[in-house]
Design a protein around this nucleic acid. Structure first.
Lengths: 106, 106
DNA sequence: TATATTTGCAACCAGATGGTTTCACAAAAT
DNA sequence: ATTTTGTGAAACCATCTGGTTGCAAATATA
């Protein structure tokens, strides 16, 4: 069973859950109210998100509050970094070409 | 059949293919040499990557060169932006707390 | 022209995935 | 003490996924 952050964010429902709990912790029931699927389906998603450390739980009586572990999101940012370098380089090259054309016009 | 960029990068083999062709275009055969699976399996991955515009083809005789459409990667960056804002805010808040402690020490 | 190379596509298959229903259990409310 | 509420886990199911083998088409080479 693969269980990394990239597989976690592949599902649109899970991305929606992430967006929901990004700003404030929520209980499974409260989260599920925002979707058409059952609470159990949402619970399964939360399990997957918890397993890959994207989400943390906080018990409060019989309620469990789920919140986003924002630090984990940096992993995606880190992976993206190598490609950001590439597109910035390409942009600079294009910029160079454009300024050369501008100069020639003068 | 879902076919978005998040599903595309969910598979580790596809992420490896993306990394391979990020800097230079490659043929399916050349790409497949880097993996244990068959050329056809790689071909399937290339099809998925092409379908969601992450990769573009360039025919050259009977060979087809695949290269990364780096622009498409920005979509992930854009999605990440909302969370980057959050973690930067949290960092600044932490920074504030730390500087307050520093002042108190003085 | 005959053969080799490069490729995509269809058919098939085992296992993963996302959903459901059902159940068990602990905490809160009656 | 009994009922209600909030939750996770198990069993099941249809569909998706990633892999394979086999084949056909197009281009290059003999």
């Amino acid at each position: 069973m693969r269980r990394d952050i990239f597989q976690a964010i592949a599902d649109p429902t899970r991305r929606a859950i992430i967006a929901l709990i990004a700003l404030q912790a929520m209980t499974p029931n409260a989260i599920a109210e925002n979707f058409n699927s059952t609470r159990q389906a949402v619970s399964k998603h939360l399990r997957i998100l918890t397993e890959c450390k994207l989400v943390k739980q906080q018990q409060q009586g019989r309620e469990i509050y789920y919140s986003l572990q924002i630090e984990k999101m940096k992993e995606i940012d880190k992976w993206l970094e190598q490609y950001r370098k590439i597109w910035e380089t390409r942009f600079n090259q294009l910029d160079k070409v454009l300024s050369t054309i501008k100069k020639q016009k003068k």
